[in-house]
Design a binder for these strands. Structure first.
Lengths: 107, 107
DNA sequence: ATAAAATAGTTTATAATATAAAGTGATTTA
DNA sequence: TAAATCACTTTATATTATAAACTATTTTAT
């Protein structure tokens, strides 16, 4: 059982889903963003985006702050230190998976 | 709606699943491999591996050849030209997604 | 000789997940 | 003031991953 197996098993499935991967990667590159900006980024329906953000928050990877701006509800989202660590780890592990699988030889 | 959306939508979900991603990446780097070698690579149960290979074959990304070797059934798996094209495209698109998400700024 | 275990898989069932649809409560427009 | 819009959340459905159960042949043990 090659080292690819270890990388496979440890790949964080919460981050692997493409929408959450884009969200976390984008959030790791800016101070914060609000709900509508993230919706423009991903093109997700609001329901879908809401569910994905809830999962990320429940896991402690982001924090959300709900306020009113110009009489409108406004949700500001920020990555946590933990979130920053796991997204960086994810990309490293995916690179490892790719390299190990590419270098693998049968037998 | 930023360009991340286009990358998100076009990311091939058949290839994105980690086990199939490892399988296709490995198969793109060798002439062929048999069922047991791929099972050692991925650590999948035989049932799971069988299902994933069936999906890849149904999509025309691999071909399988079943024979008997030393009185044992033996399934040899090879990537197709189409398979090679789509796995290379997948990795390019994932890099794009990463780069675009990292360069994105809210507003 | 034959019952039990192992090999190399496939098929089926279940549990998890993504995603859309429907719903909420406030605000603006007609 | 009724209807439409905004910014979401909650619930339902459809898809998917994954393990469990099964099949058919072969080897090993008694």
């Amino acid at each position: 059982m090659s080292s690819v197996f270890a990388e496979l098993a440890s790949l964080d499935k919460l981050l692997h889903e493409p929408a959450r991967l884009a969200l976390m990667t984008a959030l790791s590159a800016c101070k914060s963003a609000d709900f509508l900006a993230l919706q423009r980024l991903t093109g997700l329906t609001s329901g879908n985006l809401s569910v994905q953000l809830s999962k990320l928050e429940e896991a402690g990877l982001i924090v959300t702050e709900k306020q009113f701006v110009a009489k409108r509800p406004n949700t500001r989202i920020q990555i946590t230190e933990k979130g920053r660590q796991v997204i960086e780890k994810y990309w490293r592990q995916l690179e490892s998976l790719r390299r190990d699988a590419q270098n693998w030889q049968p037998d």
